[in-house]
Simulated assay, not measured.
Amino acid sequence: MSEPTNSQSKTVTAAILLIGDEILSGRTQDKNMAWMAGRLSEIGVQLREVRVVPDIEAEIVAAVNALRAKFDYIFTTGGIGPTHDDITADSMAAAFGVGIDYHPEAMAILTRHYETSGIEFNTARKRMARIPDGASLIDNPVSKAPGFRLENVYVMAGVPTIMQAMFEEIAPTLHGGAKMQSRTIGAGLPEGKVADALGELQSRYPDVSMGSYPYFRQGEVGTNLVIRSTDSDALNRAFDELMQAVTELGAVAIETT
């Protein structure tokens, strides 16, 4: 896809591809998606899809090719370490139809790191310097093994602290669009009682996303009504109308954060 432009009116979209058998098995609980979703929102990039795939090249290739054609940015996590099942780099090369080899700059970074650490830079660790042809490196200030970028696909580590550090390295280069805004009403009534009013309001504000989320606190049954839009005027009008509708249903309603 074409490089996103820095326009406040443009909608810039992204997908996250989580790679790893350990996530699908439940052995590792992913913490990257929620963190990245928050940072992307701050930048003005709307996260539209998240997929989890195993350490199988064909699965990774199919997913990344589908997503990179659909969204402005793709961010992948996992599978760029030193072990045999770290196949993300090879899979990305296959997805883009390019070769892969030891990257001179990556090799230099890792050589200095292991010399300084007094740790053997063995064959397994050298795997982390294998980068698809034409990719640019993503700096890793934590453990030094770099990620990389191919077109609109950003490949990062799966360890949350390392992924977050990598993301902050690329964040200044990401071009956001209109930022999503949200307002929430906490209403002291069951979800089913407000459903009709919410549906009717949604039909009149198709560009405002509306959702209802029931809660149960200290014996109280209630519903959080969340509305979201990049259009602040439409958001505020919809909010005022929703507040009025909830009040007319006899509920105590307050704006919450």
Score class of each variant (00 low, 15 high):
4 P>M: 06
5 T>E: 08
14 A>H: 05
17 L>C: 09
17 L>D: 06
18 L>W: 00
24 L>H: 00
25 S>L: 07
28 T>F: 05
33 M>F: 03
34 A>H: 06
39 R>W: 08
47 L>Q: 01
49 E>N: 08
68 R>E: 11
73 Y>I: 02
73 Y>C: 00
74 I>Q: 01
76 T>G: 12
77 T>F: 04
82 P>V: 05
82 P>M: 09
90 D>N: 14
91 S>M: 09
92 M>T: 13
93 A>R: 01
94 A>P: 06
96 F>R: 03
96 F>D: 00
97 G>V: 14
98 V>P: 06
99 G>W: 07
103 H>K: 09
106 A>K: 10
106 A>N: 12
107 M>L: 14
109 I>M: 15
110 L>A: 07
114 Y>D: 05
115 E>W: 11
116 T>P: 00
121 F>T: 05
123 T>K: 15
124 A>V: 06
127 R>Y: 08
131 I>N: 06
133 D>H: 12
134 G>P: 09
135 A>H: 08
136 S>Q: 07
139 D>P: 01
140 N>W: 02
144 K>R: 15
146 P>M: 15
147 G>N: 10
153 V>T: 13
154 Y>D: 01
155 V>L: 04
160 P>R: 12
161 T>D: 09
165 A>W: 12
168 E>N: 10
175 H>G: 00
177 G>K: 00
177 G>E: 01
177 G>Y: 01
177 G>F: 03
178 A>H: 03
184 T>M: 07
191 E>W: 01
195 A>P: 03
201 L>G: 08
208 V>L: 11
214 P>V: 06
216 F>S: 05
219 G>T: 14
222 G>I: 02
224 N>K: 09
235 L>G: 06
237 R>V: 07
238 A>Q: 05
241 E>P: 08
246 V>F: 12
252 V>W: 05
